[in-house]
Write a protein that binds this DNA or RNA. Structure first.
Lengths: 195, 195
DNA sequence: ACTCAAGAGATGACATCGTCAACTGAAACT
DNA sequence: AGTTTCAGTTGACGATGTCATCTCTTGAGT
């Protein structure tokens, strides 16, 4: 029927799914090994057959999210009929959308776990290099690094403020995340037009 | 000698200090009510006389940090002999410095606790309105809101990436947080010069 | 001056959590 | 067929947040 390896891979996937779902619905506090196991159809000790500890499980969830975002970035870059500026805007909005619809997952993606602080940064690499290439197409290799770093930082901050619903404060005059991204993209794209 | 109210206020302050110190040195995991109590010279149950629960204590720590940052912003704005652009840069760097030297406290300041998600946003108000006034001095009332929101978001994101030491990645060509802030300030100050 | 309510703090207890050690059973290998 | 490997279960332990209860000092009312 099913080999042992297949069964193990299936439960591993089920554990990741369960953890991601619990994170989405109930926040980080809801992700307990007991709940994850129960939702995956196993018991509390089972995760230890697939992950070193709880932190490793969470890192795996975050890494998987970075991978799917990397896929989206890659597809976006290959998309024909889009200008470099449009691709740049799209990439930033893809990141912000994660923060918008899965805020807890988003926080996890940008958290640096005490055990292995670089783990999630490594998982983010592909997403970021894809985006870097898009920026380079717009502003040239020379300034691409600085601008890409600035854009990713800014998008991250915008998503963060929006997640804590601070952007909605009337103090900012009702700006949306898209407004801020557009302002930024226009400034940079405009600058590149001057060269 | 000392009245009861004074003594209570003193332990309340000691609890806040203890929590802040534990947070700085050992991260959020190190902040346990037992450890906080011990460091403040009381036992685990004492905090419940001053705070509703652990979350309320952490919110109080974060709020106090926002208050001192607000003081710094206020002093910076009143500083004579500084151009509006310099004040703007200084305000952003003040925020980034918190992320640089007290990363755990910084994360707390931008976290939205499940119990009262708006509590820390309220504490951040004064800092942000002070900064908003500085930005208005540079770019005018009209665009101040949008630019201030963008700048705070960006600074937040930059501090976040720096905290997870992702800015150090050679992929970005060795940019510093100051570089990114300057790039941003120049773009906005330059734009305002055009008007 | 005496009484007594109030409240800060201590303490015992409980549920929950992450984690480990020992155990079980079935699949995979020789 | 016998043996090993390994996914999964179960019991136990220490740590933690939180509540109920108790103690004791302070401070106000008479």
């Amino acid at each position: 029927m099913i080999s042992r390896a297949e069964s193990a891979a299936a439960t591993r996937r089920a554990l990741l799914d369960a953890a991601a779902e619990l994170l989405d619905s109930g926040g980080l506090d809801a992700v307990t090994l007991r709940a994850v196991g129960a939702r995956a159809g196993v018991t509390r000790g089972a995760p230890y057959r697939h992950f070193l500890d709880k932190e490793s499980l969470l890192i795996a969830v975050g890494s998987r999210a970075w991978d799917t975002l990397g896929d989206r970035m890659q597809a976006l870059r290959a998309e024909p009929g889009l200008s470099a500026a449009e691709k740049m805007r799209g990439g930033l909005l893809a990141l912000i959308d994660v923060g918008r619809f899965q805020p807890h997952l988003y926080k996890l993606m940008f958290s640096n776990p005490p055990g292995d602080p670089t783990a999630l940064a490594r998982a983010a690499q592909r997403s970021q290099t894809e985006f870097l290439a898009v920026v380079a197409d717009l502003v040239g290799e020379q300034d691409a690094r600085r601008y890409a770093a600035l854009l990713i930082s800014s998008a991250n901050g915008i998503a963060g403020l929006e997640a804590s619903s601070q952007l909605a404060d009337p103090k900012w005059g009702g700006v949306s995340a898209e407004d801020l991204i557009d302002t930024l993209v226009d400034m940079i794209a405009g600058k590149s037009r001057h060269a």
